[in-house]
Design a protein around this nucleic acid. Structure first.
Length: 413
RNA sequence: GCGGCUGUAGCUCAGCUGGUAGUAGCGCCAGAUUGUGAUUCUGGAAGUCACGGGUUCGAACCCCGUCAGCCGCCCCA
């Protein structure tokens, strides 16, 4: 027997209704903020991510689905979408279009990790990028938008964390400071942190081992090391968020795993997600376009929502049910039903026709499908030129004309 | 990539210290005579007990391996 490959899954009804609802809300919110959809290929050149995301990141160094194409070129299934969007932005000279380019996407990403709760090898992201402005106002607007989006999907009890990770000027200085501060205490930290202290000191700040926390608290904060550009930028972002009444928490130890982030970074966590408690991550990446070959400075900020994780945490809805379940008795009635069904569907009524079934069976199926009405069509009705319409909930049934069907159903009775 | 737990009908699960699977619940299908569902009653189908080895007279049960799922680590959405 064939099965979905490890880490991938089939989404079945009625769960797909929840996905559609989430996506519908996302599109509505994107529209309100004047974002437009971009669709980029799932396959990209391997180098795009090595250069964009960073060759040393976990995503690139060990999680990509990479393979050699028949012509020898190295391709990958995209592990994230920001690099692709920037690639498309450069390729199609979107920098020549007027104003800030505000783009959104919804689609699958691929990372070859060990699956667990809220983590799949094929997972879906809803994300957006605003390219062409360094203004902290844009940062605040993006953050406001994600907050709005999550709230409207019905997600409650999430926490918005923000931070600034500085820029190429102030971050290296901070890293040195951190290294110096870590030297005397590294031996008392967990083994992972001892390794991180060497390879990537910023990661130590993100350690979750409880015993390490007292020592980590004592380490310098990047917010004290921000340069004269980064510091006011962050202040303004917080001010604009406060203006809009958006609750947030400053987490100076928030570190993101992608190399391209600078200045503003943010994350949304939710308690119901288990160890993978992050529903959304994002940040500013002012140098990314240039590192991907753009001749024009194209600063940007973006985010992506883990749609699988969001769906996990929002209420489970019900899928749509038919308005009318038509039960035709006999061949003549079936032909008549086919035409009637077409006409009803054309005016927006959801119709199911029970073909070649006994009436009892048709009624059973109408009930199981949660249909609002059953429409019985037999020789009597054909002779009289009417239909028998039964309200499945109240059990009342009447003989009605074609016009009355649409009227009754349209009224939602 | 590393660790822990789990793997019996479509689903949720029983199955005693190994003797060769359950009238279990839900679901599914059919019937309770004529053109009426959801309630009720009756009947039925469906499992190579994840897969492959081993121990044993005998394994769903014990041992080893593989695979899958879940949970955690790493990291991230």
């Amino acid at each position: 027997m064939f099965r979905a490959v490890k880490g991938t899954r089939d989404l079945l009804p009625p769960d797909t209704a929840v996905w559609n609802r989430v996506e519908r809300i996302a599109r509505e919110v994107f529209r309100a903020y004047n974002y437009h959809e971009i669709r980029t290929p799932i396959l990209e050149e391997e180098q795009l991510f090595a250069r964009g995301v960073g060759a040393d990141t976990d995503i690139v160094s060990k999680e990509m689905y990479a393979f050699e194409d028949r012509d020898g070129s190295r391709l990958v299934l995209r592990p994230e979408n920001t690099a692709s969007v920037i690639r498309a932005y450069i390729e199609h000279r979107l920098d020549q279009r007027p104003g800030v380019q505000k783009l959104y996407y919804i689609g699958p990403m691929f990372r070859r990790e060990r699956p667990q709760k809220g983590r799949y090898r094929q997972f879906f992201q809803i994300g957006a990028e605003a390219i062409g402005s360094e203004s902290p106002f844009v940062d605040a607007e993006v953050i406001e938008m994600v907050s709005e989006m999550l709230t409207r999907t019905g997600l409650g009890g999430f926490t918005l964390l923000i931070n600034s990770v500085g820029c190429q000027n102030c971050r290296p200085q901070f890293v040195e400071k951190l290294r110096a501060a870590l030297k005397p205490v590294a031996a008392q930290l967990c083994v992972d942190c001892q390794r991180r202290a060497e390879t990537n000191p910023l990661r130590v700040l993100d350690c979750k081992v409880p015993e390490d926390q007292p020592l980590i608290e004592q380490l310098p904060s990047i917010l004290d090391s921000l340069c004269e550009i980064c510091a006011p930028h962050f202040e303004q972002v917080m001010m604009y968020l406060a203006d809009r009444g958006i609750p947030f928490e400053v987490k100076p130890r928030l570190v993101r795993g992608l190399d391209y982030y600078m200045r503003t970074t943010f994350e949304v966590t939710h308690g119901d997600l288990g160890a993978q408690n992050s529903v959304l991550g994002g940040g500013r990446y002012d140098g990314l376009a240039e590192s991907l070959g753009s001749s024009v400075h194209s600063p940007g900020i973006g985010f992506s929502i883990g749609e699988d994780r969001l769906v996990m945490t929002v209420a489970r809805g019900e899928d749509s049910a038919p308005d009318v379940f038509i039960a035709p008795l006999g061949e003549a009635a079936l032909r008549h039903a086919g035409v009637l069904a077409r006409d009803l569907r054309r005016v927006g009524v959801t119709v199911e026709v029970a073909a070649n079934l006994k009436l009892k069976r048709a009624m059973e199926l109408a009930n199981k499908a949660a249909a609002r009405y059953a429409l019985i069509l037999g020789d009597d009705e054909i002779a009289a030129g009417v239909y028998t319409l039964k309200n499945m909930r109240s059990t009342e049934q009447h003989r009605v004309t074609r016009e009355q069907i649409i009227e009754t159903i349209g009224n939602g009775n």
